[in-house]
Design a protein around this nucleic acid. Structure first.
Lengths: 225, 225
DNA sequence: ATATTTAATTTTGCATTCAAAATTATGTCA
DNA sequence: TGACATAATTTTGAATGCAAAATTAAATAT
């Protein structure tokens, strides 16, 4: 038997591991916005002491996912419409840049992979499978981001994305909005295949603008719950 | 005597204070890139225990200012040409956005203040006072960023700025580059006064592209020291 | 009963402690 | 002397301990 060591043994520190786990808890909604982070329970759950847990919370706070209030601990940052209106334009600028860079550097294979995600997404759209649609959609955007070959850009984007991801996921679209988003995605793929960076950038920026509309509309309608 | 309470009493946590102090140490060059962060000494210096110090280091690591290596502590992240080539385009996109937003929202008073910084900067340029030039320059860019009224944008920019600030400061410009930068700044002010967001965005993006040239050229010439 | 104190409990921030890992110093042998 | 092994020291990561602050519960007065 051949044991392949395709990856280096990564010995991660506890706090690093915790950053990821907590991020997932927040994004997946187990920890809901506004709620206090139950430090003690989480420590017991993951069987760690408070030290690495608090280190992780500090990191998440610097990324804006949790809010630290002196002497009263941390809570999951509640996303407001104002937050969305701040975050989405920044994400738009970052995605536009990712589109421009991607067109310069993307390989045919990568375009093909994104095309595949695109067609899967269309299938899910036609069948009205929202979670699957959402996953394919995300694959496209991260695919473009990856093709841009800029880790700093990817990191910044990931950070902002985490902050609004839950709201994005929950905000179910109206028929028209969904149609529009899919139509935009056709343009995105076309611009990518043509390697027209300028055009792709503009489309992505607009795409994010429309997304903001969808999400903030939804949040406005649901913010008293 | 009238005691004005224009600001709430902010009781900051140690780790938060430390994040700022360490940031300053790194930016001002007391802790030089590549160097190991002397955890113990810094604890003694600021008279804190290792707990808040390590919390601060984790935050700085997530911002890319320091690098954590498992079981061998933290070191100041050394900025490579590759880093610059990643960071500057992202900063360019962010500044372009800040220009666009600023033109929508900036007040006449703010334009006047930026104009003042601009003229001061020109004075320092003519007198070849680089540090003062640099400070005025920075005031202009942060002024635009502030006028954009987007804290998320400002935070992202600040983070990236910190990573490359030292290199930017050290890289002294050639005569031509400096002339060019100043010429660009004339355009920046003009676009701002005309509140032409699109134009300002384009200029700022290009401005950053040129800055990258300056800095990476310098770094390439000095990287073996 | 409803405020208002006061006391008990929990939570929080930070210092201290401790074991494991890494680094440096010392010793051993060819 | 120099390559290697072994021991002492330092550094690191994480658990525990402790005092101050905040929260909750109980008690008192109105």
């Amino acid at each position: 038997m051949n044991i392949t060591m395709d990856e280096a043994i990564v010995r991660r520190s506890l706090h690093d591991e915790l950053v990821e786990r907590l991020q997932r808890l927040i994004i997946e909604g187990e920890l809901t916005p506004g709620e206090k982070v139950p430090e003690k329970e989480l420590c017991e759950r993951y069987n760690v002491s408070r030290t690495p847990m608090r280190e992780a919370l500090k990191v998440l706070a610097s990324e804006g996912l949790v809010t630290l209030t002196p002497n009263r601990g941390s809570s999951v940052t509640a996303v407001t419409v104002e937050d969305l209106e701040e975050v989405f334009p920044v994400m738009g600028a970052l995605e536009a840049l990712s589109g421009e860079l991607a067109c310069e550097k993307i390989t045919d294979a990568e375009i093909a992979a994104i095309g595949k995600s695109h067609h899967e997404m269309i299938g899910h759209y036609k069948a009205k499978r929202l979670p699957e649609y959402f996953a394919a959609n995300e694959a496209i955007h991260t695919g473009i981001l990856k093709a841009a070959r800029n880790d700093t850009l990817a990191a910044q984007h990931r950070m902002l994305s985490a902050r609004v991801r839950r709201a994005r996921y929950l905000a179910n679209m109206t028929r028209e909005r969904w149609d529009k988003a899919v139509a935009e995605h056709e343009d995105i793929l076309a611009a990518l295949e043509a390697r027209d960076g300028r055009k792709l950038g503009i489309i992505l920026k607009q795409h994010l603008r429309n997304k903001l509309e969808t999400v903030s509309e939804w949040l406005r309608a649901n913010d008293r719950e």
